[in-house]
């Protein structure tokens, strides 16, 4: 689909959607949202990008192979769980730190990195499926 209008607005929409997906991911712990939803929004963004510019462009844009992203997410999620072992508490126990960055107290936790892992797995896995199916459609 090489529509001029789509190709013009696509970068803007995609950029906003990816930003929004990260916002949904990070606010997930306190408001509706989270890794699953955020990941799916990012996938939708990448799909639109793919429809506008073709699969190859998307692959170049995300630099890594989508399954590598998913694998990294799975690794990150597992490590977030394993981190608690270092502190002699059971696997997957949530750990929190509150560093002060730029005068603002920022809550960081292993739960958050776990959710980021979930986000990456969903982005990677579903994008991989969508891209490989679209790719087949082109040839």
């Amino acid at each position: 689909m090489r529509s001029l209008i789509l190709r013009t607005v696509a970068p803007l929409i995609v950029g906003l959607m990816v930003l929004f997906s990260i916002f949904v991911l990070l606010r997930g712990h306190n408001e509706p949202g989270g890794g699953f939803i955020g990941g799916l929004i990012a996938v939708a963004a990448l799909s639109i990008y793919g429809i506008a510019f073709g699969v190859e462009t998307v692959r170049r844009a995300i630099v890594f192979h989508p399954l590598s992203i998913a694998g990294a997410g799975l690794l990150l999620a597992t490590l977030s769980g394993l981190l608690s072992m270092v502190f002699h508490v059971p696997f997957m126990t949530g750990l929190w730190v509150y560093p002060v960055i730029l005068g603002e107290e920022v809550p960081l936790s292993s739960v958050m990195t776990f959710d980021i892992g979930v986000y990456l797995v969903v982005v990677g896995a579903v994008t991989s499926v969508a891209l490989s199916l679209e790719e087949r459609g082109e040839d």
């Binding site: 699953f36 896995a125 499926v129």
Partner: peptide
Amino acid sequence: ILTAIVISFSFFA
């Protein structure tokens, strides 16, 4: 259900 939705989508695909 939230996780079930994502998983059933994976299997559907």
